[in-house]
Design a protein around this nucleic acid. Structure first.
Length: 302
RNA sequence: GGGGGGAUAGCGAAGUGGCUAAACGCGGCUGACUGUAACUCAGUUCCUUAACGGUUCGGCAGUUCGAAUCUGCCUCCCCCCA
């Protein structure tokens, strides 16, 4: 099995800085596992690594798409796996670093996505139906998938319906998979007390404001419909809509960004704690770095 | 000094005799997650329990079979007039 080193954790605990230290130490490259840093035009709000921070370390899956482009897990999985393979061929340890749980799991586990064409007509049809109607359809078409999808979760219900419509039923696809990692991976989770994480998040948002977050968001919006872009649904961006439409105060907007970031950090913990096997290291402990180095060395030797 | 209004769970706010441990919102906590995932969705939130139970609606004393809801006094806050 090919090796990969994975770094996960909630926003703002210092994944980026650790990844660069490790990349230097192991003379290798970094693959970002982040759904927002792929967008070229979005820097401040995504807390993207700067050129200086990179210290010459090559970063993949960063700045590779325009914020107007479509991007999704399947694209991520395909491109990231290709890079993982290339690095392994060169005997370099790929370092995947990021906070997008699904992306990282889909890379690491045997998730299989199928090429599919969009069916606008069917999508429109689904939109015209009520939540109830959609769920009842799913109960008939793919009852098994209902076990993991709540009736109120309209987006997931629609997607499951679309999958059967396109000929690959969600439940059947997943039954064919082993739900096992396909790499020999060591997963590092960076953690800190809730209090510390929240404090760091709050400070980071203040810093983003100083760095010109408001101006960055403004530069992305050219017409009203731009607010609908997937990239603009990121935290630090979507919250500005009301502000620019004179429906919210600046301070309220900033507080909302902080709150959404905190809530997101919690969701990340939930994902990494329950979806993946993670070795956690608390950044509040003095020797956490040497512990990490030690554990990785032990793992690479075997 | 005179007149009026108000005090409800972490916060905001309903409730004005029994169906109320108390609607709803916010915040918090926990969780789900296979193509929008920084998305979307769910549960929980006085204390305690496996269940039961216990203590509440500013404080004290009453009325009543029964009070967050009625009465009296007290404390604090807000508004208006002087």
């Amino acid at each position: 099995m090919e090796k990969i080193l994975i770094i996960v954790g909630p926003t703002g605990v210092g994944k980026t800085s650790l990844s660069i230290q490790l990349a230097k130490r192991y003379k290798t490259e970094i693959i970002s596992g982040d759904s927002m840093q792929v967008y070229r035009e979005m820097n401040i709000g995504t807390a993207k690594v700067t050129k200086e921070e990179m210290q010459g370390i090559k970063h993949h899956m960063v700045d590779c798409y325009s914020y107007k482009d479509e991007f999704n897990v399947m694209i991520f999985q395909k491109e990231a796996r290709k890079i993982v393979h290339e690095l392994n061929v060169k005997h370099q340890l790929p370092i995947v670093c990021g906070g997008t749980g699904l992306y990282i799991k889909s890379l690491y586990y045997d998730y299989e996505f199928k090429e599919e064409a969009v069916d606008e007509k069917f999508a429109q049809f689904l939109k015209s139906r009520s939540d109830d109607e959609c769920y009842r359809m799913l109960e008939i078409i793919d009852p098994k998938s209902c076990e993991t999808i709540h009736p109120n979760n309209r987006k997931r219900v629609e997607r499951a319906l679309m999958r059967t419509h396109l000929g690959h039923k969600k439940s059947e696809d997943e039954e064919k998979q082993n739900h096992q990692p396909i790499y020999d991976a060591y997963v590092i989770g960076l953690s800190a007390s809730r209090e510390t994480v929240y404090e760091r998040i709050n400070q980071r948002v203040d810093l983003m404001m100083k760095d010109g977050l408001k101006e960055e968001v403004q530069s992305l919006i050219h017409e009203k419909s731009d607010w609908e872009l997937q990239s603009l649904q990121g935290i630090g961006y979507k919250e500005w809509k009301d502000y620019f439409e004179n429906k919210a105060e600046l301070n309220t907007t900033i507080e909302l960004i902080k709150k959404n970031s905190r809530n997101f950090a919690k969701r990340q913990y939930t994902w990494f704690n329950n979806q993946m096997q993670v070795h956690w290291y608390n950044i509040e402990e003095k020797d956490y770095l040497s512990k990490i180095f030690h554990d990785i060395d032990k793992w690479t030797e075997k």
